[in-house]
């Protein structure tokens, strides 16, 4: 490539970065605006909206609700996803490709379809819309991710570690808990953080599977239908910061050698 095209590509990259960051930056900025009206011009700045958010008990309970769901679905997804990763990377059997495709299927389903199918399914199983249904929905969505991360990590584990453990008297369960699980842990913690973020951020499943109590994105969505407000900016900014910090931590853990 010539110098010229290289320069163009560099500009496209930075333009892309701006495209990604400008909307979020504006959102954060508006959270500090000293007016109920979202938009320019900005006359003066305030922390008022953050105080409002912190004192909003309803919002805090929404936060707690979302958090409970995130933790529960993550724990479930880690257990099932790790189990699936063990199966797919350590066992030899016919039809492995099919099992892999089935387990990772939710990763490629359009969101609305996944949500609707789960809504119908939970109804037929007698699970009313609410926390249980949302947790299960998020677990379904997160298992493929944990499986893929777990498989990647397991593929880098020397076979001899497990063999050595068995050689020294460990059965498969003991060698899993004493050797394989410690090896997987950093990757699983990283994957777990991402699962929590995904669950925390998920709208479409939470919306269709949830009962009267909203998760945070569902709450914000319902607020948005009545119009923008600086409070939403303040909440969103808080979520943004938490997300970025957790995401960076997870990224580090998952890439650690």
């Amino acid at each position: 490539m010539t110098r010229h095209t290289r320069l163009i590509m560099q500009m496209v990259y930075w333009a892309f970065v701006l495209y990604l960051f400008i909307p979020l930056s504006l959102m954060v900025l508006m959270g500090f605006k000293d007016s109920k009206f979202i938009g320019f011009p900005i006359k003066s700045l305030t922390l008022h909206w953050y105080k409002v958010v912190i004192q909003d008990l309803e919002l805090m309970s929404v936060f707690a609700y979302s958090f409970t769901i995130a933790i529960s679905s993550t724990v479930l997804a880690i257990i099932i996803g790790t189990w699936a990763a063990m199966l797919l990377s350590q066992a030899k059997f016919k039809g492995k490709i099919i099992v892999f495709a089935l387990i990772t299927l939710p990763a490629v389903l359009p969101g609305i379809i996944s949500a609707i199918a789960l809504r119908i399914y939970s109804q037929t199983l007698g699970i009313e819309p609410g926390m249980t249904a949302v947790i299960l929905g998020h677990t379904v969505h997160n298992v493929p991710f944990v499986t893929l991360v777990g498989m990647a990590r397991l593929n880098s584990q020397p076979m001899s570690h497990v063999e050595a453990a068995q050689d020294l008297g460990a059965d498969n369960v003991i060698s899993f808990f004493r050797i394989t699980l410690p090896y997987l842990t950093p990757a699983l913690v990283g994957a777990g953080i991402f699962c929590m973020l995904t669950s925390f951020d998920d709208f479409v499943r939470s919306f269709f599977l949830g009962g009267y109590e909203p998760t945070l994105p569902v709450y914000i969505f319902s607020q948005l239908r009545t119009g923008m407000s600086p409070e939403i900016n303040a909440i969103s900014s808080v979520v943004l910061v938490i997300t970025a910090v957790m995401g960076l931590a997870a990224e580090r853990l998952m890439r650690r050698k």
Partner: peptide, 20 residues
């Protein structure tokens, strides 16, 4: 990493009649 709703909201702020 930020969720769908929050990013959609950010776009609203960008493109609104009084948006950036």
């Amino acid at each position: 990493w930020v969720g769908e709703i929050i990013r959609t909201y950010a776009i609203m702020i960008l493109l609104g009649n009084n948006g950036a």
